[in-house]
Design a protein around this nucleic acid. Structure first.
Lengths: 357, 357
DNA sequence: TTGAAAGCGTTACCAC
DNA sequence: GTGGTAACGCTTTCAA
C-alpha cells in the first residue's frame, strides 16, 4: 500500500510492458517500432501493447538503441564559444534539419587554450559520443588540431570557413558583387565600401566581400572607394576619444563628391555609418543609401537596414545534409558547398540624390 | 596485405585492447578508468594497456557507458528556436558548467505548433535521451505542456521566466532599481523610462524592470516619466512612416524640461534613443545619459552603452547547478534562483547638464 | 503470430 | 593482481 500506486517504478522498459501484457519483449518492440502489422501481430495485441506503454509512461532508452545500432543520433557542434559566431538562425537550421532525420545537436565548447595545446583533443572528441562533427568558424585552426580530428574515425565538416572540401559557407564574394550591383542598378556611381581593419587572423569573408565589391565596380566601370574602420577602442581613454565616427564623417561630409551609397561589412560598420549620417543630418535613403551584411533582417535597429543575408539557416541545413552524406559514405571527401547570399530589402536604399533633383 | 595496415578495424573496443595485450577486459577497463593502481595492477601492465589504447585510437563508447550507468551525460535545452532568446553567453555558461561535470548540452528545437497541440510532446521528450531538461524562456507556456513535462520522470528546470521554483532568471526588478539609482547618484532628476508596448504575451522582465525603476524613483522622491515604444512596424508602408523615433524625439526636444537621462528596456529602445538623440544634435553623455538592459557590453554599437548586464553566463552556470541538484535529488523542488544584474560602465552616462554649467 | 536468444560495449562484483 | 561473468535495454534473426 505504501509502495503500490504512488511510487512509479523507476524505469519502465520494454520488458516491463512485456510483463504487464504477458507478451515477449520482441513482440513489444515490434509493435512499438511500428513493425507490428508487418510482423502480422494481432490488431488487439498491438493496441494492448500501445495502451500499456502509454499507461506506464514508457520512453525508449536512446543509449540502449544507440549501443545496438552503433549510431548515437547526435551530432556535435565544436567551437570556441568565447567570441563565437552562433546566430540563432544557424542553430535553427541545424536543429531543424537534424530533427527531420531524428537526430540532435550536441553543443561542445572548446576552450581556445585547448586548440593551442598540441594534439590535445577536447573530451567530446576523445570518446565516441556523436555520429558526426561540425566545426564552426574557428579562425586560424591549427593544422595539428585538424589532423587530430581527421585521425578520428568520425565524419567531420567545417562551417563558415572557406576550405575546398567538406565545408559549408556563405558566398561572400558574390554577396559583395550583389551589394555593389544592387546599388549600381539604383543609379549610384560613388559607392563606398566600409570594412574592418584586416589584421593577421582575418576571416575569409573580410577578403571576399571586399573582392566582390571591387570586381563588381570594375565591371560597371566605376571607381572604388574604401574605408577601413579602425578596430574597437579598448581603454576608456580610447573610447572617449573614439575617432572612428568622426573619420567616417569626414568621408561623408563633402557636399558634391561624397559617396551616395555605402556597403558595410557588417553591423559594427553599419552602426558607425548610421551615427555619422545622423550627425551630418543626412536623410537616409534620400541623401545616402546603405546595405550591410548580416544573418537576418534585424528589426532591432529601428531602421530596417537593407541586408545581404548570409542565409545561416540554409547554411545549417546544408551542413546537416553534407554531414549525413559523409556519415553514410565514411572516408569520402565532398566538395564544399557555397550558400548564396540574398538581398533583403529594408528601407535604407534608394536612388542617389542627383537623380532625384 | 590489402586489409592489414590501411584498413583500421571499424571499432576499437576495450575487448580489442584486451586481445592485443592478452589481458582480460576487466583489467583493461580498470586501467583505463584510472582504477589500475587501486586494483593493484602492475605498473608495466598499466602502461602497456594505455599505450595500446593510444596506438589503436581507442575511444570509449558513451552509449555503452550510459546504458550501464543509467546516465546519458546529456542535458537537453528545450525552446522554440524561432524567435529564441539564446545569447552566446548563456550557451557559454551552460556548456562550461556542464563540461566541468563531464556533461554535454543537447539542443532541441521545439516548434511552436507543438506547444499548442494538447499533450503532444516533442520527440526528445518522448524518449530517454537526456538526464535533465532545461526549458528556456517559453513565454506563455501552456499548462498542458508543463504538466506533460512534469509527468516525465526527468528533472526539469526553467530558464529566464519567473516561476517560484526550479527556475533561474535575472533579477530584473533590482536591475531596474539599480539603473535608476545609478542615474540618480549621478545627479539626474528627470529620468525617462523607455520600454516596449506591453502586449498580452509579455515577458516578466517588461514588468519587473519598469517596477524597479518606479520604486527607485519613488524612494528617491523623484517623479517618473515613461514612454512605451510602439511595436516594430510591419508593412513597408508602416516602416516608411515609422513614427517611433519622431515621437521619442518629441519627448527629448524641449530644452528645459527634457529628461537628462534614459533607462531603456533593451537594445531596440536604445537604438531609437540614439537615433533621436543624434537627430536632435544632442551630445551623449553631456546633454543626456543612457543605460540599457542587455546580456553583455556590446561593442558593435560604436558607442559602448552603459549596460545593465543580466549575467547570462552566470544564469547558465546556476541553471546547471540547479539541474544537477535536481538530478541527484529527483522529485525535490528547489526555490528559484535569481541572478543579480550588474552595471557595466560604458560611455553613455555622466552628470546631468545642469550640474555641469 | 509469437517467443527465445544473441549481441552491442561498458561497468562492477566476486572469485581465483 | 587478474580474470570470469552478469547486467544495462534494445534490436533483430530465426524458430516455432
Amino acid at each position: 500500500m505504501t509502495d503500490g500506486a504512488n511510487t512509479r517504478p523507476a524505469r519502465v522498459t520494454a520488458a516491463t510492458i512485456a510483463a504487464h501484457t504477458g507478451l515477449s519483449r520482441a513482440t513489444v518492440t515490434h509493435v512499438l517500432n511500428g513493425r507490428g502489422t508487418e510482423q502480422r501481430i494481432r490488431r488487439d495485441t498491438q493496441e494492448r501493447v500501445i495502451e500499456t506503454a502509454r499507461l506506464l509512461g514508457y520512453r525508449p532508452n536512446a543509449s540502449a538503441r544507440a549501443l545496438h545500432t552503433g549510431k548515437t543520433g547526435n551530432v556535435a557542434l565544436i567551437q570556441s564559444l568565447m567570441g563565437a559566431y552562433l546566430p540563432e538562425r544557424l542553430l535553427l537550421g541545424l536543429t531543424e534539419a537534424l530533427g527531420e532525420n531524428n537526430m540532435y545537436l550536441t553543443l561542445a565548447e572548446v576552450p581556445d587554450s585547448v586548440l593551442d595545446e598540441q594534439s590535445y583533443l577536447p573530451k567530446i572528441l576523445r570518446e565516441h559520443t556523436a555520429d558526426g562533427l561540425i566545426i564552426n568558424r574557428i579562425v586560424g585552426i591549427p593544422d595539428t588540431f585538424v589532423e587530430a580530428v581527421n585521425s578520428l574515425n568520425t565524419p567531420v565538416i567545417f562551417l563558415n570557413v572557406n576550405r575546398p572540401s567538406d565545408t559549408v559557407y556563405p558566398d561572400d564574394y558574390n554577396g559583395g558583387k550583389l551589394a555593389a550591383n544592387y546599388l549600381v542598378s539604383l543609379g549610384h556611381t560613388r559607392i563606398l565600401y566600409v570594412g574592418p581593419t584586416i589584421g593577421t587572423d582575418y576571416h575569409y569573408s573580410q577578403i571576399d566581400r571586399q573582392r566582390g565589391y571591387r570586381d563588381a565596380m570594375k565591371e560597371a566601370g566605376l571607381p572604388t572607394q574604401e574605408f577601413s574602420l579602425p578596430p574597437n577602442p579598448e581603454t576608456e581613454e580610447q573610447i572617449r576619444n573614439d575617432s572612428r565616427v568622426p573619420i567616417l564623417r569626414s568621408y561623408l561630409e563633402p557636399r558634391l563628391q561624397r559617396p551616395t551609397a555605402i556597403v558595410a561589412y557588417e553591423m559594427a560598420e553599419s552602426m558607425a555609418v548610421l551615427h555619422a549620417v545622423n550627425q551630418l543630418q543626412l536623410q537616409m535613403p534620400q541623401d545616402i543609401s546603405l546595405v550591410m551584411f548580416h544573418h537576418q533582417m534585424d528589426q532591432r535597429f529601428c531602421v530596417p537596414i537593407t541586408t545581404l543575408c548570409n542565409g545561416m539557416q540554409q547554411v545549417g541545413r546544408e551542413a546537416v545534409n553534407l554531414l549525413l552524406d559523409k556519415i553514410s559514405a565514411p572516408g569520402t571527401s565532398f566538395p564544399s558547398r557555397v550558400v548564396p547570399i540574398e538581398l533583403l530589402r529594408g528601407v535604407t536604399c534608394g536612388p542617389p540624390p542627383s537623380l532625384c533633383r
